[in-house]
Simulated assay, not measured.
Amino acid sequence: MTSDQDPATARHPKFASAGLFVLVSVLWGVPYLFNDIALQQIGPLWIAAVRVAIAGLALGPLLLRDGRWRSIVERWPSLLLLAVVEVALPFTLIAMGQRTVPSGTTGVLIALEPIFVALIALWLTRGRDMTVTGWAGLAVGILGVITLLGLDLTGPGALLIVAAALSYAIGATSIPHLFPDTDSLTIAAAMILLATPILLLVALLSEPFVLPSPETWTALVVLGLACSAAGFTAFFSLIKRATPTTASITIYVSPIVSLGAGIVVLGERATLSEGIGCALILIGAALVLRRKATPDLNDDVAADRAPQRADQA
């Protein structure tokens, strides 16, 4: 046991991993609920900008440790690209899409990310590495999307959220190639800091600013500190204590949390067709992730290179 380990955590590693798993699933399942709350008063661009600014204030000091700030100076073009596709663009698209899409459905549509990652990998490898399970997951997930997009309930906003999931996937597949030797938490802090001025400028030029009420401020603080900053920290800790494969399961557990939160807190109602579409997407994501969990996977190496995003939210 190293000197910086908590004795209780060291004695009960499985308990600690289970707790982190639940924490990450909750933190990345509720942001859509708080987006809905904030949207009642302020615009989607300001929600994305303020949320990222708060997360940046929390994670920014990490870059001062061990000279991590040099990553921004030395790799700023790559980090800027990542800040756009992993933070600025998806956060904005999600908030805009939620003006017409329920929070629970939003969480499920974001679970398309591993399916998009598989499609990108399929395109890059021309299908050489795709297994029967992978093909089945893609087919089931796409069927779920078709089912959901055919509902009047989702409207055009669903396309924006699907685009956000695609943007997340592009960033996720880019991280191992752009930053093979950089730890994920440093990447997360750097890209959030770079995304902050971009989103603030876009919001200033595009939307009028309305002074948030205490309830809206609470939602924004939860989005920034809990769902983004704490969510990242907990996710990276889970990868270290368990495996990237175990951590990736949160991708299709958190949508269940978002569905439950929307029903319990906001009184959202899920139709039978919507439930079928959501179930198909989650099953498809599970099959795609199962395809990745091959017996010869080196989890220690994957932990250092695991593609991460600022929220799954």
Results as ranks from 00 to 15, higher is better:
I94Y: 00
I94P: 02
I94M: 08
M96P: 04
Q98S: 07
R99F: 05
R99K: 11
V101E: 04
P102K: 13
S103N: 11
S103W: 07
G104I: 01
G104H: 07
G107S: 01
V108L: 00
V108A: 06
L109Q: 07
L109S: 05
I110R: 14
L112H: 11
E113S: 14
P114W: 10
F116K: 05
F116Y: 08
V117L: 09
A118Y: 05
L119Q: 05
L119R: 09
I120C: 06
I120A: 06
L122S: 06
L122V: 05
W123P: 05
L124R: 15
L124E: 13
T125S: 15
T125Q: 09
G127C: 12
D129F: 00
T131D: 04
V132K: 12
W135A: 15
G137M: 11
G137Y: 09
L138I: 14
A139V: 07
A139I: 07
V140D: 00
G141M: 02
G141A: 03
I142W: 05
I142Q: 06
L143M: 13
G144V: 04
V145Y: 03
V145A: 12
L148C: 07
L148G: 04
L149I: 04
G150E: 11
L153K: 15
G157A: 10
G157F: 09
G157H: 09
A158Y: 05
A158W: 07
A158S: 14
L159P: 00
L159G: 00
L159E: 01
V162M: 12
V162F: 12
A163N: 03
A165T: 04
A165K: 08
L166T: 09
L166K: 10
L166D: 04
S167R: 10
S167D: 08
S167G: 03
Y168Q: 11
Y168I: 09
Y168R: 13
A169G: 03
A169P: 09
I170T: 07
I170P: 02
G171Q: 12
P176Y: 03
P176R: 02
H177D: 12
H177I: 15
F179P: 00
